[in-house]
Amino acid sequence: MSGAVAVGARDSEPVAHEAILEARGVTKQFGGLTAVKDVYFSIPRTAIVSIIGPNGAGKTTFFNLLTGLYKPTEGAISFDGDEITGSRPDQITARGVARTFQNIRLFGTMSAVENVMVGQHARMRAGLFGSILRTPRVRREEREVREKARETLSYVGLKPQVHDQLATNLAYGDQRRVEIARALASDPKLLLLDEPTAGMNPQESDELTQFMRRLRDDRQVSILLIEHDMKVVMGVSEQITVLDHGEKISEGQPQAVRADPRVIEAYLGKQESERQH
């Protein structure tokens, strides 16, 4: 059945709700600089897709637009069928988008468990008075949230011995894991990972690749990945989008993108100019 629909999918809008996230003509300017320019982009449900591009291409800025940290100068973004253009980051998180950061941004003075508990904020209900009175419901919620935090930490591969260590004292790879756990704690439908393998050794990168697939299959999470490691990108992505100078210059399946002359030029040109410096 799905095969038959696929043929006509281009023209028939009604079936189109297969996309979990859709960006339409999104532009972001910082003063005179256009960091993201008129990008149309969508993520199929429970797919793993990647954005690649040279440094400064606008990838992180695009993430910040999707998660509400920046407001688009132009264009619109919808998630799971609803407009989220201009929504606050916490509202977008509550709807089911979670992310990690290119430079790890854990809460350093909190333990790994506490970090992941913060990640569940949007899924918790305890208010001011409930917390002061510590009602049975609040107690139960605290206990469940703490348990779920430990489960999530174990799920991303953090050893139980280090669950209660302060985030700053964790090894680099473990900090990356905790950040992913913190994002997963909000039960996202879409997970955005910004260069998650930066600083990892090849074995750790492999593990992460496996992990992303497992995550998608176990929890039906869609994943959007920004990644420099081509082995990871080519191995895991169903679709790759290439940004250069804020513009989408190519999009498609890994093999097609890899062979696209514009992509090769963007990367080679980059290397060329780096060589000259």
Binding site: L69, D90, T93, A98, F107, H121, S131, R134, S186
Partner: peptide
């Protein structure tokens, strides 16, 4: 009240935004 709030959802949110507003907001803290 100090003790109870410190060890609560709200207390964690305060610490989170004290340390890193961007990360806190991105984790769902309004």
């Amino acid at each position: 009240v100090n003790f109870r709030l410190r060890d609560s959802r709200l207390g964690r949110a305060w610490i989170a935004l004290r340390e890193d507003e961007v990360a806190a907001a991105s984790m769902g803290v309004p």
